[in-house]
Design a protein around this nucleic acid. Structure first.
Lengths: 326, 326
DNA sequence: TTGTATGCGTTATCAG
DNA sequence: CTGATAACGCATACAA
């Protein structure tokens, strides 16, 4: 079913139907007859053909490193909410933490002529920058500061600083750290730096063996806690770069019947839904993930409507959730 | 950049470039020169124009009720994995539990000419059936049995029966139930029926006030546990239709310092990642969510390749996870 | 093996 | 206000 057939059935020209669908520059009489035919046939215009003419797809490409993650799925939910409301559809690409796949997905996004792109929790390399700029499609970065695009992110540094200071305030002195790769600037570097700075402000020592770097998975929290304690058996607290890692740590400590927080205190980042249900409940940092997603979608849509508008850089605050593990 | 420009730059006809991109019915010499130009320009063919000719988009529409859910995001991960591998892209539509939105999304899927559709965790109404059949696009249902399409689902009934029998075996007798709407056949009806049948086999009473129906959210588990205990203060166990609901129940019991499982035992469904970390760890049912997603994607792709192939109905088993809350 | 011409379904231009 | 027509970028039938 195409526009000409509808036109024929309604006794008008294809152009008239197109006008009905778009501007509506049409006599009432024809409007009625076209409307009737469209209702009867259930006709839906082909977006491909529309794109061919208008160069707009109402498609937004979203790249994420992992979908089954508490924080990321919240961001995606926020994005989706706004996109749907604004008549856009989301093309979701999950790299499963394989950073190099992003460039492939960027190519398919270009092929599908997405109107805009959202990069989420990405490690931004020089290659990314080159490819993205060449793409000539509006894009926005979420969860990471970026100087060549609009971005929305969290105050990872201050959050880590605040959380660590809180731990110290609680009386902990020999605090270990479980982080992630420094290639991830926000989660890998800034959180670690916040931790380090809080410690050194209080002149607390940080032996190299009390810090470990690993993946975003729970297994990492488990395994690296094991190693951490093998090397530094006298730790009285561990700060984990994400809640998921903290869960792994807790799992290991539980298995060894090490009491939390009395023997060892634990803290994470992200305020995942379970943090408050755990017992003891997890001390953590609340970030505004859903808001980050919805605001990001809005900023991108603005950018699409007005491509020459200046880049924005929005930093969300956080909230220290003082629960029971620390 | 389009195919004609590439052709001109390579000193060949547009058709030659098209052939290079597709069949490759081409002399080596031209192949080389075209390849060179494409590499230099970074040319990527427009999928819209291709679709206009070929009627295929390599797009799969996926409808889900909620993305920030442990089980659903796992299914989506499974779907995405296979889709990517097979050169498809995922168009994700999140209804946020507003069932009526599905029909809207179905329309936009049609507009975008998706090659196939995956319906996940959906309440299938007569209207759905009518719309889906009229769509004339291959589709598959996940998480729910369906007699007019291929579907992949879990043995919800036997899982509930087994879980409840296990609870009884553990010595519990006055068991309450927190369920979800019966419109959801798999989660609402089958799990409840499994519970009821296990109880009646042992001639255990189920006063109406010991059962509650609510939403899929944790708040439901919290609030309905409160009401349940107000009405039936002598319960010694509660079976919850999902882990998320169980978490809400646990949260409430913890606040009242009611000991789990000694005072009241708890069980859920889904084996979400945290179930093993909770202490006491959550007794639950493991379903094969990720497999359901990846297998579903495969079945759909087969159906697209061979539309006249018969419908399949695949039921996955489950595993009883005997943890500490029951 | 190659190129020309046509049509996919739509929208925009332009003449009426 | 309306309709004919060209153009969007590509793949394919057909002719060469």
């Amino acid at each position: 079913m195409n526009i000409s057939q509808i036109a024929k059935m309604a006794g008008v020209s294809p152009a008239a139907v197109s006008r009905y669908l778009n501007h509506g520059y049409l006599s009432e009489e024809k409007k009625v007859s076209i409307e009737k035919v469209i209702k009867e046939t259930g006709y839906i215009p082909s977006s491909q053909a529309q794109t061919l003419r208008t160069k707009t797809t109402k498609l937004i490409g979203v790249i994420i490193p992992k979908i089954d993650s508490d924080s990321i799925s919240q961001v995606v939910a926020g994005i989706g909410e706004v996109l749907t409301k604004q008549g856009y559809q989301m093309l979701l690409a999950n790299t499963e933490n394989q950073n190099d796949r992003e460039l492939e997905f960027l190519a398919t996004f270009q092929q599908h002529m997405v109107d805009g792109i959202i990069l989420l929790g990405t490690i931004l390399t020089a290659k990314h920058k080159a490819v993205l700029k060449a793409l000539n499609i509006p894009f926005i970065v979420l969860g990471q500061a970026c100087d060549y695009a609009s971005c929305i992110y969290h105050d990872d540094y201050l959050a880590a600083l605040t959380l660590t200071e809180y731990m110290i305030e609680k009386g902990h002195r020999r605090i270990g750290y479980l982080g992630v790769t420094e290639k991830d600037y926000a989660v890998g570097q800034l959180r670690k730096q916040g931790f380090l700075d809080a410690m050194s402000r209080q002149n607390l020592e940080i032996p190299a063996s009390s810090m470990r770097i690993g993946s975003f998975y729970m297994e990492n929290g488990y395994e690296n806690t094991k190693r951490l304690l093998a090397d530094c058996s006298d730790l009285d607290a561990i700060v984990c770069a994400t809640d998921t890692i903290a869960l792994g740590a807790i799992k290991y400590l539980n298995q060894l019947s090490i009491k939390i927080p009395n023997d060892i205190a634990i803290a994470g980042f992200g305020d995942s839904r379970i943090s408050s249900i755990l017992s003891p409940s997890l001390t953590t940092i609340h970030f505004y993930y859903r808001e980050c997603g919805s605001e990001g979608a809005k900023v991108l849509i603005d950018k699409i409507a007005n491509p020459s508008s200046p880049n924005k850089s929005l930093k969300y605050g956080f909230e220290l959730i003082k629960n029971e593990t620390a």
